[in-house]
Computed example of a mutant assay.
Amino acid sequence: MSEPLRDPLHDPLHIGLVVNPLAGVGGSRALKGSDGEQVRELVRREGGVDRAASRAARALALLRDSDEPLRFSTWGGAMGEDLLRSLGIGAEVLGSPGLGLSAAADTREAATALRAAVDLLVFVGGDGTARDVLDAVGDHYPVLGIPAGVKMHSAVFAVSPEAAGELLIRLARGGLVGLRRQEVRDIDEEAFRAGRVRTRFYGEMQVPGEARFLQQTKVGGREDQALVAAEIAAWLAESLDPDTLYLVGPGSTTAVLLEELGLPATLLGVDALRDGAVLAADADEQTLLELLAAHKGPARIVVTAIGGQGHILGRGNQQLSPRVVRAVGCDNILVVAAKSKIAALEGRPLLVDSNDPELDRALAGYRRVITGYDDEILYRVEGPA
């Protein structure tokens, strides 16, 4: 097993790779797809499992040859390990498929394990693979498909392997890469082989795509900060769960959320709210801990970035202490910021400085940032240098 490529305080983009080695093998055989036992039996007799790996190699070679530091985790054998080794790319292998040809269950198992460890899951396959990944990771985790299948009806794939590689490089460089909900669809192969086209919608997944920077513009092309804050607030207000306790950090962007809800806001403090009511205004650490201890449901922290610096924790919101963050959970932090504020960082990461190095390491990595109404990007977070 290779050692992971990791700098604990400056984590590069951590990519999880899972390859469906059977993807695309039915195409040259005019089988209208690669699902089902018929294809598996044919591969057992004739071999020819190389299309998925060769197409994935075209994307990964661009990453290998770039100057961007990247970290990889993958699944054993033909499901990723062999390919990365052939390209000279080090990776942490989190598990392996069983003996013989891999199956859908192996893809789901690999995707589930990788989801818990990486920033972004890259999978290689077709529509059937996309369905398996959706089953494993759900619709709120960022993924990107490298197209290698016969059936390509889903919108979760890059237009080519090279496009996938270029997009990942842009993301690693700190570019403004938006997250979009894209459809996962599949076709009934048996009906297709009989000449009938039946496609089915299975769900959506979050996919990084080219960001259209400054979508809300005025004459002169400058982002309207007040408009963006209002759009972020409107989106958050629609998304609030009445059973969740929200700890809303200081800042003008977060204050607009409470204004949107018709509630008083503490511009330079932390407010706690649930089900449309403020439970504590300008709360200190102890008050937040007491609220969390008494609350039996989920909790989330909402923070924004300090302009110019990029801090999201540890500057002006020390009430959100390491104990508070741990009580809420590192995965339950919502970061909101206008794209212009992120762009002003010029590729520098968002920062956390909680005064707890272990927590800072846990918070580091690529996180989703809400940048508008139903608009998100992936952006890097780091601890103090």
Rank of each mutant, 00 (worst) to 15 (best):
M1V: 09
E3G: 07
L5F: 15
L5S: 15
L5A: 13
L9P: 02
R29K: 14
A30F: 09
L31Y: 10
S34E: 09
G36K: 02
E41W: 05
L42D: 12
V43M: 09
V43I: 08
R44P: 02
R45P: 10
R45N: 13
G48R: 03
A53K: 08
A53P: 01
A53L: 03
R55D: 01
A61S: 14
S73I: 04
T74R: 03
W75S: 08
G76Y: 07
G77E: 10
M79E: 07
E81M: 09
E81N: 02
E81F: 04
L84A: 05
G90D: 06
S96T: 09
P97D: 07
P97R: 09
L101N: 09
A103M: 12
A104R: 09
R115H: 01
D119F: 02
L120V: 07
F123W: 03
F123D: 03
V124L: 04
V124Q: 04
T129M: 08
D132N: 12
V133D: 06
G138W: 01
V143Q: 04
G145S: 05
A148T: 03
A155E: 11
P161A: 08
A163I: 00
L167R: 01
R170E: 13
L171V: 03
A172S: 13
R173P: 01
G175N: 11
R180G: 12
R181M: 08
E183K: 14
R185G: 10
R185C: 14
E189T: 14
A191M: 09
F192E: 08
R193G: 05
R200E: 12
R200Y: 05
F201D: 09
E204I: 11
E204D: 15
M205L: 14
Q206F: 03
V207R: 00
P208I: 02
R212A: 11
T217Y: 03
T217A: 15
K218A: 15
K218R: 14
R222S: 05
Q225Y: 13
L227M: 12
I232E: 09
A234P: 08
A234S: 14
A237D: 07
D243K: 11
L245R: 02
G249S: 05
S252E: 06
V256K: 04
V256G: 01
L257E: 08
L258R: 11
T266M: 04
L267Q: 10
G269H: 06
A272Q: 05
G276C: 06
V278M: 13
D282I: 12
A283M: 11
L288K: 03
L289H: 10
L291C: 09
P298N: 10
I301R: 03
A305G: 03
H311P: 03
Q319C: 11
L320E: 02
V324H: 00
V328E: 04
V328S: 08
G329E: 06
C330V: 15
I333S: 05
A337G: 07
I342A: 04
I342S: 06
A343W: 07
L345A: 12
V352I: 10
V352C: 02
D353P: 01
P357H: 02
T371F: 00
T371A: 08
I377R: 00
R380C: 02
